[in-house]
Write a protein that binds this DNA or RNA. Structure first.
Lengths: 407, 407
DNA sequence: ACTAAATAATAAATTTTTTTATTAAATGTT
DNA sequence: AACATTTAATAAAAAAATTTATTATTTAGT
């Protein structure tokens, strides 16, 4: 029971065999992405006649790649059989790497999460040891999962910073040699490996099973420690020439003289991001502001999670004030992008999505003020639905869609 | 000799006939867009066998839609016949409407310009008379061209402002009734009509036969009277949800208290655009600055064309200074977009492309300073090649590609 | 100039796909 | 409950496309 034979396209196969293979691919893709379906529907969808589709569905059943899920109800007439992908036929692996933790998820062929390990303790550092440790964690997860490696179609690893997914290069982390990072990891985990920018993977998660319904043009704002963006355009991920699209945080907007992580000054990220929030709160506390957080003797030790909990659990006024300011700044910048992109949907995601109640209103107000009316009317706002699972889920869908040649 | 029969897809045609029609469409599209080709090549391109392609090419020859252009040279072996679209089989019409003139072009099926009328005197005003006048001009052009109307696949009319090309609505000009503007014009000129945003059409012109070579992600900056942008993404025009993408000029960047044409204050367009240039030059002249333009007794009467000629013909220092300032401001904003889009190419087009020598360097300098290094390295700069013909040429290509269902 | 190798085009044979006809299974109406 | 209607699935006949074989043209090498 393996579909790999469908995807070794050796050179000298005759045209007719190629067409059969392609149609089979189409059927597998349709059943994986679109879910269960009947022969008459698949016939319409693919443009091939019912006997042809029937024959191939028979072969796929024989091969164990799909299952017959029995007759389904209709409004009238003989009831058709519904066929769907065998959940056990293949799997997708998603890995989200943050500064302090790794989250790994395994998805079955029918897009169900079969295993997820959240927040495995890990320290992301830009050295070989850290990379080796990451591979060890992934290998341990796969071994524990009891899914044979050859059934795992591929793994997608999400990292922050500049990622060229097409070539497999990461420039901000683990750029030690001329070989693509994806190949280095691939040889260590023995599973086809892709790498992806974290914001983009989160975006793809929300797009496939999050808040995105039918929207084709979407901006996903990832406010976590840094500030990133993922873009859905023409109904698919937008990469740009080399995959550096969405570098949202480093717009030169402020004269604040604060040095950004990118090396420049006055970036949007210095005013709108997790670390900006932490810095601002600490500054205010040091200059005597009171807050739920004031009870901390050591101001230095305060971290974002504590600030978020102060907002969510205690409606901390100081933090809410800072968040509202941040929302206004974000909204003003988003207004420009909205004018350029004319999106249908803007999603607030990332760690700070937890406090989006306080961000969203100022964002929307600023956006309304600074963007063109007609363009602004098209935009809806939503908060991420998948939360901190968006990354892994998205990564699994990226593997799936790369496998099917859609990305 | 008409290909229309291929495109009336009535409902109850059998599957096999549909497939033949689709393959014929593919062949016509390939020969129109890709140019002349041989049967073996077309076979590889379409994935159909040589005898099948041979049969259909025979039919298309019979129908007069394509021509046999004779044997072509190869490196070895029997020489194949080359087939190409009959230039006379169908035509595309492009219409560019500016504040003060209309330019109309007619393109043959093999993408050659067969007739162009540039700068027909016209005054764009937002009333029904102005619209009627426009239709009269188009009708006169078609009559004079001696190409039968039914051979004109369609016309694309370019206008400034918010255009929803999909629905055919224009909101900034000629929005008089609930009916789409495209239908109104269509019934007056008796040719299938599309409307398009001017910057977008210009972008498509440059993309198809201008400075764009193989770049898939392109930003086209249209600096004319106003400031607009066209975007090529994933190798095609980007529209956004309703077709309002590229509203470049109305980013709220300045505290200059100048009222923009959009009704808001401090828009980029108030500092970077043809009218900004005119305003700034006039202000400086009024406060006593000297320039080639000083000899004009009536400062009010100075227009952009005079300023451009002062720069091009006399290297006017005052105007060049203003242009360099504008370039810096434009570059700073472009830096943000480049970070988000990661384009391969940025094109300076529109009326002010004539003085791009003085814009480009400050734009590039500012862009380098304010964008991320890795992203900035991907960007190349070019000046529009088609100049003031970009709009009509692009409009023709838009008709062509809408006809073939590519847009 | 002759011959081998390469590519194109055509013809005949084979395979694949579709069409049409038939049977099966379900719903709803009189 | 019988029957018309609808949709699905299968079988046999017909059509279409591909494969293989053959012929035609051209280049390059001896």
């Amino acid at each position: 029971m393996s579909i790999s034979f469908l995807f070794n396209n050796s050179d000298n196969i005759p045209l007719s065999a190629l067409k059969t293979i392609n149609l089979k691919k189409d059927l597998i893709r349709s059943l994986t992405i679109g879910g269960e379906n009947t022969i008459p529907n698949l016939s319409k969808e693919t443009g091939y006649s019912i006997p042809t589709v029937t024959k191939l569905i028979g072969e796929l059943l024989e091969e164990g790649i799909i299952h017959d899920f029995g007759k389904i109800d209709t409004t009238g007439g003989r009831r058709p059989s519904s066929y769907g992908i065998n959940p056990n036929a293949f799997y997708f692996l998603g890995v989200e790497v943050t500064r302090t933790a790794v989250t790994i998820g395994l998805q079955s062929a029918d897009n169900k999460n079969v295993k997820i390990s959240e927040n495995i303790l890990y320290s992301l550092e830009n050295n070989r040891e850290s990379l080796d440790k990451l591979c060890d964690i992934i290998n341990f997860f796969i071994d524990e999962s009891e899914v044979p490696r050859k059934k795992i179609i591929g793994a997608c690893i999400n990292l922050t910073g500049r990622i060229n997914s097409r070539e497999g290069f990461s420039y901000s982390f683990f750029y030690f040699e001329e070989k693509p990072l994806s190949s280095i990891i691939e040889s260590k985990i023995r599973v086809k490996t892709y790498i992806e920018n974290d914001s983009r993977a989160m975006t793809y998660g929300e797009y496939n099973c999050g808040v995105v319904k039918n929207e084709q043009e979407v901006l996903f704002v990832n406010i976590s420690w840094g500030l990133g963006m993922g873009i859905i355009c023409k109904g698919g991920l937008y990469y740009g020439k080399s995959g550096y699209s969405g570098e949202f945080g480093h717009a030169p907007l402020f004269d604040n003289d604060i040095l950004c992580q990118c090396g420049k000054k006055g970036c949007l990220e210095t005013e709108v991001s997790g670390w900006a929030l932490e810095r601002k709160i600490k500054e205010k506390l040091r200059s005597g502001a009171t807050s739920v957080l004031s009870k901390n003797k050591n101001i230095d030790s305060i971290n974002i999670n504590q600030i978020i909990s102060a907002v969510v659990d205690h409606e901390d006024v100081l933090a809410i004030e800072v968040l509202e300011e941040m929302g206004e700044k974000l909204g003003r910048y988003l207004a420009m992008l909205v004018n350029i992109f004319n999106p249908e949907l803007v999603i607030i995601g990332g760690t700070l999505a937890a406090v989006s109640d306080y961000l969203q209103l100022p964002v929307q107000t600023a956006l309304k003020r600074y963007s063109l009316n007609l363009v602004n009317q098209d935009v809806r706002f939503k908060t991420s639905k998948l939360g901190d699972k968006a990354g892994v889920v998205g990564a699994c869908y990226i593997v799936r869609d790369r496998f099917f040649g859609l990305i």
